[in-house]
Simulated scan of single mutants.
Amino acid sequence: MDAALPATLLEQYARFSLYNSPYPAHDGGCAVDLYPGTLENGRTHVAPSPVTGTVLETETVRAPPKPYATDHDHLILLECVAPAPLAGLVARVLHVEPAVEAGDRVERGDSLGRLVRAGFFAPWVDNHLHVGFRRPDQHLHRASGSLALELGVDVQPLAWDGTGTVVATGETYAVLDSPPHPRPGEQFVGLRAEWRSSDRGDADGRVGDRTGTGGVGVLDGGLSHYDGGGIHTGGRSERVAESVVVLNDDRLGVVGPDGRTIGWDDVVVTANDEPITGLSTFCARDGDFGAKLICPDHALAVGDDVCVRVRPRQ
């Protein structure tokens, strides 16, 4: 890992994810999406700065055309002074219409401007800041090339049996009431998954016979509507490399050599035995946390009971 995300940075935000994105900038956990929704209502347009520093540059960039989003985005480059682990690096911030300009000094938590919904977003993604860090001698404008990120907070894995009741819906998603956050606002949580150094599964992808070592971690990423995801294991990455990742005995994929990036198997997520687009996983500290099903044009309604499974694609 090359850059640490300390607690003082992450705890400004309601949610974060290193992997829940289809864009190469997140490959290997080299960028973080920070969701600053308030703990009261989960939504805000304000973009609090993740760092203290000086604005080096702002730039407007093109974004893919989408009917629900703008066709442009903005890049803000910040020379970091604090938090200490990031001092001397340059922060790259996207998805914020800047209210700052080159030469401005900003403190951590100051507003950088207004969050924008750009064409880089999938329709089910909430507004957020995309942030990566680079050394000053690196190319600062290229989309990929940011340093790999290490979490400076512990994320509590929440056990989930795959069931729940729908408590919120949108055109492209449904949110379940489970697993509930045990202490909203006090710490980050995420969906618990197991990693196993080896396994033997049946034809349905169930992993019932395990061998070798194993442990638990927190899932991060879009299963499997994005190519891969990650697992946060609290600094045990050297033991997790090449392990199989399992959710409720359903095999999800294999961890790569870095000990946290997952390549999903060819699987499909189902809700009540019907295929859906996927399962969105992330780290959160807000009270609205619950399993988020990605299911455009779904027929789910508030109050529906749901059972989620992950099966090999036929």
Rank of each mutant, 00 (worst) to 15 (best):
G119E: 06
W160D: 04
Q187G: 14
D297A: 15
P123L: 14
A99T: 15
L75F: 06
V207K: 02
D204N: 10
T261D: 05
D71R: 13
V125E: 14
D137A: 13
D137N: 07
T165L: 01
Q314E: 13
W124C: 02
D110W: 03
H26K: 10
V268W: 05
V310H: 03
S197W: 06
P312Q: 03
A82D: 03
A193R: 07
P257D: 10
V166H: 04
F133Y: 09
G113A: 10
L252F: 04
T172S: 14
L5S: 00
D199L: 15
H232V: 14
R236L: 04
A69N: 04
L56Q: 07
D154F: 03
V93P: 02
F133H: 02
L223V: 14
V153H: 01
E150A: 08
E40I: 10
G222W: 14
Q12H: 04
T58I: 13
S111C: 09
H141Y: 08
A301R: 15
L10C: 05
A14S: 13
F133L: 02
R285C: 09
L191E: 08
L75S: 02
C307M: 13
D305N: 09
D249R: 14
G37Y: 05
H181N: 06
E242Q: 04
D177C: 01
S49G: 01
L78H: 04
A14Q: 11
L140D: 00
A284V: 03
T211C: 03
A31M: 09
P65I: 14
L5A: 01
T44Q: 06
E242H: 11
G37T: 09
F282L: 10
R134Q: 09
I276Q: 01
D154R: 04
F121T: 07
V245L: 06
C283Q: 13
I76F: 08
G228R: 13
H139W: 12
Q314R: 15
G234I: 04
V81H: 11
R196D: 02
D265E: 08
E171S: 14
V96I: 13
V106M: 12
Q314I: 13
V32W: 01
R251G: 12
E274Y: 03
S49L: 06
